[in-house]
Amino acid sequence: MAIRKVDFFCGAFLSYLITNRVEPTLFEAGEKSKMLRFTIAQHDYKVFLKYSATPKESIKSKKENTKWDVIFTSKEMDLLKDYPEEGRKNVVVLVCTDPKMKNTSFVALDYNDAKACLGDDSINKQRRISISHIKNSPKISVYGTAISDKKAFQYDFNCDKYFGFIEKI
C-alpha cells in the first residue's frame, strides 16, 4: 500500500503538533487536503492543510528566492466556503517542501487572508495561493489568484510564532 503525499505531509504536521504537546484530531480527509482541530493555550484551532512539493527557485533583488504555488481544486473551494467554525481560529496551513522532502516548512495563514488570496468564482476557475521566501528572511510573502505579489500579506516564516510556541518579537 502506497502512502499518498498528503498523508505524509499531514503526518509531518501532526508530528510537529505532538512534539509541541498538542493533541490534534483529524476529522476530514480529502484526496489532496486534510482538516484538523486542536487546542493550544485556550485557543481552539481548525486547520485546513494543503501542500506543495514543487518549489521554484529564482533570484530577486540579488537574493535567492523560493516560491511555492498551492493549487486548490473546485471541491476544496467548496469546502472552504463552509469552513469557518464559530469560536475557533480558522487557519490554512500550507506545507512547503522540495521533491526530496528535505527542506519542509509549515506556513500558517489566517483563513480570511487565505480566502482573499484565492478570490471568488468571478476571478478564475483554478485558484492558488503562492508563498515566496527570500533566503534567510524571517518573513514570507503570501499572495494568490486574487492578490498580486505587490500587495502580498507578510507573515513570519516560523510557524512556531503563529501558534505561540515561541514568543512573537
Rank of each mutant, 00 (worst) to 15 (best):
T25P: 00
S33V: 03
L36A: 05
Y16M: 06
K32G: 05
I18W: 00
V22C: 06
E28T: 08
I18G: 00
L17A: 08
T25H: 04
P24C: 13
L17F: 12
T39D: 01
K32P: 00
H43I: 14
H43G: 01
T39N: 02
P24K: 10
G30N: 10
I18R: 13
S15F: 01
Y16K: 11
E31G: 12
T25A: 08
R21H: 15
K32Q: 05
M35F: 00
V22P: 02
S33N: 11
A41P: 00
K34T: 12
I40E: 14
H43Y: 03
F27P: 08
I18H: 01
I40H: 15
T19E: 11
S15V: 01
V22H: 02
T19Y: 05
K34Y: 15
G30Q: 14
L26F: 00
I40V: 15
D44W: 01
V22W: 04
D44N: 12
I40Y: 08
I18D: 00
A41D: 09
F27E: 12
R21N: 15
R37H: 03
S15M: 02
V22L: 03
E28A: 14
P24M: 13
F27C: 12
P24G: 10
S15G: 04
E23D: 06
I40S: 07
A29E: 15
D44R: 09
F27N: 13
Q42E: 09
A41G: 02
E28I: 02
R21Q: 15
E28G: 06
M35C: 11
R37I: 04
E28H: 06
K34H: 15
F27G: 07
S33Q: 11
K32Y: 04
R21A: 14
E28R: 14
R21I: 07
P24Q: 06
F38K: 06
D44K: 11
R37F: 00
T25L: 12
D44S: 10
P24V: 13
F38C: 09
N20Q: 02
P24W: 10
Q42S: 11
I18V: 09
A41C: 03
K32A: 06
T39H: 01
E23H: 07
E23R: 09
